[in-house]
């Protein structure tokens, strides 16, 4: 796996609730979480790497309006990530233990871990959960 230019931290300093998988093939690729303390603050877990021991996930915050813009193909996933000054990485072992946790400046994310500039939402590639989320009142009202 890539060596991260990031600060190792003890654990995530945010409390999240799993909501659903947006992209899935034989396991999640992009998953949606919400902050337990700020329901309008969303987080996305994006799978980005693996080796024989670990799966690495990039975790980043998304404001509700920006999530709505992504789901309506007006922002890319790359742009959502770049809205943040810092992101998290976690390495999970095969027992889903969080083995490593990092706080990483967004500018230092390895290129191989970033989506492309064309990473727009494509409805025909997403799970039903993503379509329901896109059409939910709480997000559609944020699109102007």
């Amino acid at each position: 796996m890539e060596i991260l230019e990031a600060d190792r931290i003890d654990s995530l300093d945010i409390k999240l609730r799993y909501k659903g998988d947006l992209l899935y093939h034989e396991g999640p690729i992009l998953s949606h979480f919400e902050s337990l303390t700020q329901p309008q603050v969303h987080y996305l877990y994006k799978w980005c790497d693996c080796d024989e021991q670990y799966n690495r996930w990039l975790i980043f915050k998304v404001e509700a309006q920006k999530l709505a813009l992504f789901l309506h193909e007006k922002m890319t996933l790359l742009e959502l990530i770049k809205e943040n000054k810092f992101v998290y990485f976690i390495d999970l072992d095969t027992h889903l233990n969080q083995v490593n946790t990092f706080l990483c400046p967004t500018q230092k994310i390895p290129t191989e871990y970033l989506p492309t500039e064309k990473s727009y939402f494509k409805e025909n590639q997403y799970q039903p959960y993503a379509i329901d989320l896109k059409n939910s009142n709480r997000l559609t009202t944020l699109i102007v």
Binding site: L23, K46, C48, C50, L77, E112, Y113, S119
Partner: peptide, 18 residues
């Protein structure tokens, strides 16, 4: 098409997974 979209979203390490 399915793989290419995962590549756009996940980055090049997706080859290691799939």
């Amino acid at each position: 098409d399915r793989f290419d979209y995962f590549l756009q979203i996940s980055g090049k390490k997706i080859y290691k997974r799939f």
